[in-house]
């Protein structure tokens, strides 16, 4: 049969579900070992964070799509969590090989890292369901539209109160760690990168300005230009 946007989206959703069938909603045995190898075991914090962000995500999602879709947010979040744990495991394996260390205590106790990684996983799930067309300067549309037109990037950053600059940091490693990502999803994440670099990271309240200021204070250099410039 001829390919239509809806058929293509249904196929992508089905593929994502198949890819995540073997991944659990909880950290795998391999991840549990990485957690135990930490100087400070992050297991409790990680599970609590997922629980807290899950409630927040579902609440904001259901609020955005309306009463007729209550419960849908939780389903999407569950898929996102599976992808989050799966990519985290692949990232740690890759880092272990690259750095020859097994103690990732600092990284695994970094709340910003986890929130960014989970946000990236959810962005992939949302893009798979919602398509990847531009609308009103962000992303939205596709098979999930029009009910989900407000859920495109950077919606997730607002929900998790995450700086675009931090979200940006996980994208490349995420793509490297998840070779089954569809071409469309890779393209979507690449567009999130571009949108961040071109506009979002340079908004007045971005932590980037403070980081640049600190960097300049540490060494000789020019004054950081104000956001308006």
């Amino acid at each position: 049969p001829p390919q239509t946007p809806v058929r293509a989206a249904m196929s992508s959703i089905q593929q994502l579900r198949v890819d995540l069938t073997s991944s659990g909603d909880q950290p795998s045995a391999v991840l549990a070992v990485y957690f135990k190898n930490c100087t400070l075991d992050p297991t409790g914090e990680i599970l609590q964070r997922v629980e807290r962000l899950g409630q927040l995500f579902s609440q904001m999602f259901d609020q955005a799509v309306g009463l007729r879709c209550v419960g849908l947010g939780k389903q999407r979040f569950t898929l996102g969590v599976r992808l989050y744990y799966r990519v985290m495991e692949a990232m740690l394996k890759s880092e272990e090989k690259r750095l020859s260390v097994q103690n990732f205590s600092k990284l695994l106790n970094d709340s910003t890292f986890h929130t960014s990684l989970l946000a990236c996983a959810l962005e992939v799930v949302m893009a798979t369901y919602g398509g990847t067309s531009f609308k009103n300067g962000g992303y939205s549309g596709g098979a999930g539209a029009p009910a989900e037109t407000d859920l495109g990037f950077p919606w997730i950053l607002d929900v998790f109160r995450l700086a675009a600059f931090d979200f940006y940091k996980v994208i490349e490693s995420f793509i490297k760690a998840e070779p089954t990502l569809s071409k469309d999803n890779v393209k979507h994440l690449e567009r999130c990168e571009h949108l961040t670099m071109e506009t979002i990271a340079w908004r007045g309240d971005s932590p980037l300005f403070e980081l640049l200021r600190l960097t300049h204070e540490e060494g000789p250099g020019e004054q950081v230009e104000p956001p308006s410039t």
Binding site: R98, L99, F104, K106, L107, V170, E172, I175, K183, E190
Partner: peptide
């Protein structure tokens, strides 16, 4: 199968990006 441009060098990864090297 995609043309994403990987920019990280061999000595850079998620650990360095989150200042955990």
């Amino acid at each position: 199968s995609h043309d994403y441009h990987f920019g990280l060098e061999d000595n850079e990864g998620i650990s360095e990006l989150f200042d955990c090297d």
